[in-house]
Simulated assay, not measured.
Amino acid sequence: MKEIDDNLLTEFLEGKLDEPANREIENWYDASEENRRRLEALYFVLFAGDRLRAAASVNTDQAFRSLQRRIELRRTKTRPQWRQIAARYAAILVAGVIVAGMYLYQNRPDDRICTVSAERSDCSVTLPDGSVIRLTRSSQLNYPASFDDGNRTVHLTGEAFFEVSKRNGAPFTVTTVHDAEVVVRGTKFNLKAYDDSSDVETVLVEGAVDFRAADHVVALHPGQKVSYNPTDNDLTLQTVNVEAELAARLRTFRHVDLAQIAGVIEDFYGIGVAFRSEALKNIQFTGTLDFNMPIDHILEVLTLSTNTRFNRNGEKITIHK
């Protein structure tokens, strides 16, 4: 009998030998337990390994039907042995597929969307990339649970201060309800983007950002503030006192109904606002309110600007003429 090396065994398993050579390998296989283990091990290395690396597309039945066709043992006593081998390795392959599937499942990109809401007080959240976001009360942030695919896009409703970690080739984008967005590459900035008719505003502390809204694209430098009104598609850029801007909680409204302003007041101060008549709800307000101030101050500014009055009874505010 010629020397049986791994190259010859590989050709046998791949079905490349002629009939006499196949019979010679079969006889060699029956000769000893060591030979059987050697062929089985080689089979596993050649075929099972490939299947595990392609776990998602494994068809074990097809694989072993192919193996049986290659071997085509003539002797009855040999056939059950090979069926046992096939069954044994089918079990190994199935187990391998399960393990590989679990690995792929556990390491798949996490496409969940996380939501953090600051309902009654400010709060902070650290994102998967290490960026830190400080949310102002009555604000909400949505972000992907995993940034592994380079997707660093978050969505803000309300106001937040961002400290964005730098990551080469992966810009950080903040989208808003008004289709305005801020694109950054490692910086500190404050963004206001409420879902009412107040302006979308960004104040840049350090770094560089691009502010994009409709047909506007503005590159900000530290110490600058951009204000965008989605109703008028109006955008302004100015130099500001950053510390003063961050300390204040200013909201700028343009031609906004009092009913909508009342909703903002209710959300922020947790107090009810009612109107003596429906017509009062439609009066429009244009101006800036500082929500760091007591509610009575807010109401004074609001009613003086709209030629209305207000009464306060505990936690209930009534606006009237």
Rank of each mutant, 00 (worst) to 15 (best):
L191V: 10
L191I: 08
L191Q: 08
A193T: 02
A193S: 09
Y194M: 02
D196F: 04
S197Q: 09
S197N: 14
S198F: 03
D199G: 06
V200G: 05
E201F: 07
E201Q: 12
T202K: 01
V203S: 11
V203D: 05
V205P: 08
V205H: 12
E206H: 03
G207Y: 08
G207A: 00
G207C: 02
A208R: 15
A208H: 08
A208C: 11
V209Q: 04
D210Y: 14
D210L: 14
F211L: 11
F211S: 02
A213I: 05
A214G: 14
A214E: 12
D215N: 11
H216G: 05
V217S: 14
V218A: 12
V218N: 08
A219H: 15
L220C: 00
H221K: 13
H221L: 14
Q224F: 03
Q224H: 09
V226I: 07
V226C: 06
S227E: 07
Y228K: 10
N229K: 06
N229D: 04
P230C: 04
T231F: 13
D232V: 10
D232W: 12
N233F: 05
D234E: 07
D234P: 02
L235F: 10
L235N: 07
T236L: 06
V240I: 07
V242P: 00
A244R: 07
E245K: 01
E245I: 00
L246T: 04
A248P: 11
R249M: 15
R249V: 12
R249C: 06
L250P: 01
R251Y: 04
R251T: 02
T252V: 12
F253E: 02
R254S: 09
H255F: 02
L258K: 01
L258G: 01
A259L: 09
A259W: 14
A259I: 08
I261V: 06
I261A: 09
A262T: 05
A262S: 08
A262P: 01
F268N: 13
F268M: 05
Y269W: 00
G270Q: 09
I271R: 08
V273Y: 02
A274Y: 04
R276K: 15
R276W: 13
S277C: 12
E278H: 11
E278P: 06
A279I: 15
I283M: 01
I283G: 04
Q284V: 08
G287P: 00
G287T: 05
G287S: 03
L289G: 01
L289F: 08
D290C: 07
N292E: 11
M293W: 15
P294N: 15
P294W: 11
I295Q: 10
D296K: 13
L299D: 07
E300T: 10
V301L: 12
T303F: 05
T303V: 03
T303H: 03
S305W: 14
T306L: 02
F310A: 00
F310L: 08
R312C: 00
R312T: 02
